[in-house]
């Protein structure tokens, strides 16, 4: 967090995204300024329809803004061509989606290696990397399974492994626990915690207070604008007992 001020990995200024025209104009993202430092975990929270997913798409180069700037690692990405954007997506960012978005006909390991293959790595290197990543997310024994044979939590872990495949600068996650039960959410949280500890920059859009609570920073969003920022300072309060009223 200390170097967030000098050199943010991700930086947005006056970011806007509008849909429709005239009466039907919707400002999904309306003048967002944001700096995210290397190694930071940032949670964006807000009611559904507040524009947080759109913001994530703009930051990750999945969608183009109507106005404003986005820079990744000091380079503008809002005005570059489709091709450069595609290169950015396969080298600098990784995505995790609410509904996993795995290819049904590919096994876990094939899904993970796909983004490495798209990035032009050799099949052998891509496969090795994919196997390592699956091991890292605790699914080494499920590598040859099709997504349909995996549980929701396992699928999301495969998706996380895929997002990490090309050692991205930033991993973007859009409601990663939205389709998961409590226990599977825990698995994903633990995985994110591990990423955080290894210094991975992580931007998570979520409804889930549990994810938000484990972030370094929590940003609240309403009607396309950032309205509040909370830093949940590090270290535990050491008063866990207070949670169950043990000390009276």
């Amino acid at each position: 967090m200390s170097n967030a001020a000098d050199m943010p990995v991700l930086r947005a200024r006056g970011l806007r995204k509008e849909y429709g025209k005239g009466e039907g104009l919707v400002r999904a993202v309306d003048g967002v300024d944001l700096d995210i430092g290397a190694g930071e975990t940032v949670a964006v929270m807000g009611p559904s329809g507040c524009g947080k997913s759109t913001l994530l798409h703009l930051l990750g180069g999945l969608d183009r803004p109507s106005g404003g700037e986005v820079s990744l690692n000091g380079h503008r990405i809002d005005d570059i061509g489709e091709k450069a954007l595609a290169r950015l997506r396969r080298t600098a960012v990784g995505f995790v989606f609410q509904s996993f978005h795995l290819m049904e006909e590919l096994t876990a390991v094939e899904n993970v290696e796909l983004s490495a293959l798209l990035a032009g790595r050799s099949p052998r290197a891509a496969r090795r990397r994919a196997e390592d990543l699956l091991e890292q997310v605790g699914l080494a024994d499920r590598a040859r399974f099709l997504p349909s044979a995996l549980s929701g939590g396992q699928r999301q872990r495969v998706a996380v492994a895929r997002a990490l495949s090309n050692e991205p600068l930033v991993v973007f996650a859009d409601e990663p626990t939205g389709n998961l039960d409590s226990a599977a959410t825990m698995d994903v949280l633990q995985l994110f915690e591990g990423l955080h500890e290894s210094g991975q920059t992580l931007v998570v859009v979520t409804h889930d207070a549990r994810i938000a609570a484990t972030a370094d920073r929590m940003i609240s969003m309403r009607d396309g604008a950032l309205i509040d920022e909370t830093r949940l300072t590090g270290g535990t309060t050491g008063q866990l007992g207070a949670l169950i009223g043990l000390e009276d």
Binding site: M186, L189, Q190, E193, A209, R210, A212, A213, T214, M218, T230, L232, T236, T237, Q239, L240, A242, L243
Partner: peptide, 12 residues
């Protein structure tokens, strides 16, 4: 949120 974070960390 702070409490949640503590509990969450402890749970993990």
């Amino acid at each position: 949120l702070r409490r949640l974070r503590d509990a969450q960390r402890a749970a993990m």
